[in-house]
Simulated assay, not measured.
Amino acid sequence: MITIKDVAKAAGVSPMTVSRVVNRTDNVNSTMRKRVLRAVEQLGYVPNLSASKLRGKKSTHWTIGLILRDVANPFSAELHRSIEKSLRDSGSLTLTASNDDDRDYARELVMTMRAHQIDGLIIAPPPGNQSYLGAAAETGLPIVIVDRPSDFEQIPSVISDNYDGMRQATRHLISYGHRRIAYLGDEASVPMTARRDGFLAGLQEATIDTTEAIIRLDQFDPIQARETAVSLLESNNPPTAFIGSRNRINVAIIQALRATKRSEEIAMVGFDDIELAAELDPGMTAVAQNPILIGQIATAILMDMLENNRVQDQSVVVSTRLIKRGSGEISRTQPL
């Protein structure tokens, strides 16, 4: 078995220098670092980080569990990359999984990751009871929740300002003369109910009665949302604007507008930006979340909990940004 002393001998340096390179400390010059890394590669040396932990040494090589809703989702994918990048410089490792918004599966994933001796956890929990996270936190596992508020004081959270983002989107459409605005969404999670409430607040601030708008809160599936949008567009009293509550619903609305050839006369704003949104004609006006910043903040909080062995009691709300690209800037054409 190759040891750190073998690497030191091959590189012509001290074992302490090898340790500093392997642990990614900054006090080794680039020439020395390259010599050590070359010897590590030639000898096939693999540092035993678990052994260091067992010997009681303070380690910055953490193993972090990361459980997101769906790593294929654009928001989750950016969040994943942000957290992974934030952890990279410390030499830490992420174990990543999707919970598919299934609470029982999320609980199983937490148990499995704990069995693999994770040092901390960042999770976007499915809707519903978070008692399994509270129980894990009680054992001393540092946990940070993202994209959902926390049910527990000892578990910090980092979330988007879903309420104000949707309120601003609604007021934006109203500023272009729209009153009959169709909102397609659901109430399955706290972020979604916050977006619904933001929409209603935007209407109320403009003294628009909810009966003037069209509110559909049963739109869980993109295919269903597309059918709903087409049906509304073909009705006797169609909306003059749409608001989509999340990225897949946004795509469904865009498809419906294209299918009915109404893309240039019916306004649309989507909550969550989508890939190639700027390439559409017109470009999709969007309420953009900031998954990169959410990931950076969540990682920083977790690292502070790990390195200083303390419980964080905080909730961070990250602002959204309205990106105007054309679809949300179409003025109302129907008479009052």
Rank of each mutant, 00 (worst) to 15 (best):
residue 286 A to G: 00
residue 135 A to R: 00
residue 294 I to Q: 13
residue 10 A to P: 11
residue 230 V to G: 00
residue 213 A to L: 04
residue 308 N to F: 12
residue 287 V to G: 09
residue 89 D to G: 15
residue 104 D to L: 04
residue 335 P to F: 13
residue 334 Q to Y: 14
residue 116 H to W: 01
residue 8 A to T: 08
residue 161 D to Y: 04
residue 323 I to E: 08
residue 166 M to C: 14
residue 225 A to H: 04
residue 159 I to S: 10
residue 205 E to Y: 11
residue 31 T to H: 04
residue 321 R to V: 02
residue 267 A to P: 10
residue 40 V to I: 01
residue 168 Q to L: 15
residue 149 P to R: 07
residue 85 K to D: 04
residue 205 E to F: 13
residue 308 N to M: 11
residue 7 V to T: 00
residue 164 D to G: 04
residue 92 S to H: 09
residue 22 V to F: 00
residue 261 K to L: 10
residue 336 L to V: 06
residue 91 G to L: 02
residue 6 D to T: 04
residue 186 D to S: 15
residue 329 E to F: 03
residue 102 D to W: 03
residue 42 Q to A: 12
residue 137 A to W: 15
residue 276 L to I: 03
residue 323 I to M: 10
residue 165 G to Q: 01
residue 124 A to Y: 15
residue 223 I to N: 15
residue 74 P to F: 06
residue 81 R to N: 03
residue 226 R to F: 11
residue 62 W to C: 06
residue 111 M to R: 15
residue 148 R to I: 09
residue 132 Y to K: 00
residue 123 I to Y: 07
residue 136 A to W: 06
residue 282 P to N: 10
residue 99 N to M: 01
residue 307 E to Q: 12
residue 169 A to Y: 03
residue 96 T to A: 15
residue 100 D to A: 01
residue 231 S to W: 03
residue 88 R to N: 12
residue 118 I to M: 08
residue 184 L to A: 02
residue 303 M to H: 15
residue 244 G to T: 02
residue 41 E to R: 14
residue 163 Y to F: 12
residue 97 A to I: 11
residue 131 S to E: 09
residue 204 Q to A: 12
residue 320 T to F: 13
residue 177 G to W: 00
residue 229 A to H: 10
residue 25 T to C: 10
residue 237 N to Q: 10
residue 102 D to E: 07
residue 242 F to I: 01
residue 244 G to I: 01
residue 136 A to R: 06
residue 320 T to D: 12
residue 139 T to Q: 14
residue 277 A to Q: 05
residue 57 K to E: 13
residue 85 K to E: 07
residue 302 L to F: 03
residue 150 S to I: 08
residue 180 R to Y: 13
residue 131 S to F: 02
residue 68 L to C: 04
residue 81 R to V: 00
residue 288 A to H: 11
residue 195 R to Q: 07
residue 250 N to L: 13
residue 237 N to M: 09
residue 283 G to V: 09
residue 222 P to A: 09
residue 193 T to S: 11
residue 335 P to D: 13
residue 319 S to M: 08
residue 70 D to L: 11
residue 307 E to Y: 05
residue 276 L to A: 04
residue 4 I to Y: 00
residue 97 A to H: 03
residue 100 D to G: 05
residue 5 K to T: 13
residue 136 A to K: 09
residue 217 L to I: 14
residue 146 V to C: 10
residue 22 V to K: 03
residue 28 V to N: 05
residue 309 N to F: 10
residue 291 P to V: 06
residue 166 M to E: 11
residue 68 L to H: 03
residue 242 F to M: 06
residue 36 V to Q: 04
residue 328 G to H: 06
residue 149 P to K: 08
residue 132 Y to P: 03
residue 105 Y to R: 14
residue 185 G to I: 01
residue 332 R to T: 13
residue 191 P to A: 10
residue 291 P to N: 03
residue 215 I to N: 14
